[in-house]
């Protein structure tokens, strides 16, 4: 499974990419694999204020629904509307075309405390072993 080194991660399987003052968020390869075929994504609204750790988006497979949590507090600046018509791209390209939303962070320290690739990978390994 692929976990790019330049990204930061959460325990709830979101990834975060810093791009200037914006943070782009999606779900990890591990998450898309666990969810299996994504059939629908409910995205937050542009302009929505979000709080770290609160559910702001929902991913559905045929027989399950999963919450996606805000990795940091801030404001939603953009959403990936392509996901609404073609949710399968989350499975195909989770770190690229399958991004979910873009945030500006109100507490920069929160980004720094997110997991690194190595930390995330070892968390996955442990849960698989457990």
């Amino acid at each position: 499974m692929n976990f790019p080194a330049e990204l930061r991660y959460t325990k709830s399987h979101e990834w975060v990419r810093r791009s200037g003052d914006k943070l782009i968020v999606g779900i990890t390869d591990y998450a898309q694999h666990e969810i299996s075929d994504v059939v629908f994504i409910e995205l937050p609204h542009v302009g929505q204020q979000v709080e770290q750790g609160k559910g702001i988006s929902i991913v559905e497979s045929v027989k399950a629904a999963f919450d996606i949590y805000a990795p940091v507090s801030g404001t939603v600046k953009a959403i990936n509307t392509t996901l609404e018509s073609d949710p399968a791209i989350v499975n195909q390209d989770p770190y690229g075309k399958g991004w979910f939303f873009e945030l500006t962070s109100s507490k920069p320290s929160e980004f720094e405390s997110l997991l690194t690739r190595d930390q995330y990978e070892s968390m996955i390994r442990q849960s698989a072993a457990g």
Partner: peptide
């Protein structure tokens, strides 16, 4: 079906 109670429960 993922909108429905037997999957989403309280959501």
């Amino acid at each position: 079906q993922a909108r429905e109670q037997h999957i989403r429960r309280e959501r």
